[in-house]
Design a protein around this nucleic acid. Sequence first.
DNA 1: TGTACATCAGTGAACGCGCGTTCACTGATGTAC
DNA 2: TGTACATCAGTGAACGCGCGTTCACTGATGTAC
Lengths: 205, 205
Amino acid sequence: MPRRGYHHGNLRAALVEAALDLIAERGPAGFTMAEAAKAAEVSPAAPYRHFENREALLVEIAVQGYDLFCDLMDFAWNEGRPSALSAFMAMGRAYLAFAAKHPAHYMAMFEAGLSVNATPELAAAAERANAVLTRTAAALAQHIPAERRPPPAMFAAHVWAMSHGVVELYARGSPGARAPFPAEELLESGIGIYLCGLGLIPVDR
Amino acid sequence: MPRRGYHHGNLRAALVEAALDLIAERGPAGFTMAEAAKAAEVSPAAPYRHFENREALLVEIAVQGYDLFCDLMDFAWNEGRPSALSAFMAMGRAYLAFAAKHPAHYMAMFEAGLSVNATPELAAAAERANAVLTRTAAALAQHIPAERRPPPAMFAAHVWAMSHGVVELYARGSPGARAPFPAEELLESGIGIYLCGLGLIPVDR
DNA sequence: TGTACATCAGTGAACGCGCGTTCACTGATGTAC
DNA sequence: TGTACATCAGTGAACGCGCGTTCACTGATGTAC
């Protein structure tokens, strides 16, 4: 993306890219507009042609993160094929892969302290992500006898909570990293046991 | 804790207290030495008589947090009485209560980006917390038939991950708060289902 | 009990720094005729 | 095709600010004799 003289050409995207690098390296609080501008080889005032302020750039990253997240989750779910169960487990792996490959997006989404209502776009993106997870949970829940079936939103929340917990506590090269097991193994086994509890996986294995 | 003239009397504790308030209000990144000093009614240089630098104060808070956490968990566990299962569920509730009543401690422990190895004291405190959870998981796991019993460290990690996930995603007046269920209900039901999966709770309820 | 003195725990002023943001500006681009 | 001009997307300098931290200092405390 070489500079073409006075005008940059695609500064907005370049700033997002630069911010992603900075956030991945130093966390959402450690990124500054000045450094993002510098990384994009542009004066410190230039970013304000594209983003109203610092938070707006952070919000943009979170929105992109939610969109990417939805895509990856949808892809992993693959409309419940070959089976709802195996597709669901694939989503779990995709969740960890997303957190690992897009740490800055993940941080902007969940650790930057942004209000989901910062902008309508962000609220919509977050809601879409929520809907994807709840929809798949509902599809899988159909295989549970009705009287033992939790509300899909609760089912989804349980799984999301465990996934997020694994990411935060054990997946990130979390400082001091005392992870007792690989994150993938931890999440797979944890969700496996949880699904046993719902009767979705036969008890003996 | 009134000021007794030139000397403060208990500045170290007052600074910790002030920092806790600031962190609870604005997060670990939002707290500053200058403001903590001001809140303690002391000049900006005074804190450096008690803490080498900003991080040292944060570490102190995290250490205190781990200690408090251990105490509360031990108390809730109550040596597994009246039953290992009910004591375990009590720990889950205590976990949420700790996060709710001591948000600044919780943040310093898990969200401040401190390395667990920042100091030997911190590493020891974190290890103690880990040990408490693993110990209770091991006690409860004794009631699982050996061939279905996961390693206690894994068992503990699953439950910790779900607890932490619930706190981060649904418990904190998390920005935009779209919690579909009360955090307590979410964690209780989630762990309940998980324990069903381990055969620790009869399936029909 | 009184005094000399070491130590402790504060003060206040200053430092260098980097931040977010604004401003008047200007070079480049693209459109109307 | 050529030219006038509006608009866009940069520049560079500056602002006010608050931060972490250091320094030489001094008032208060406590101990030895």
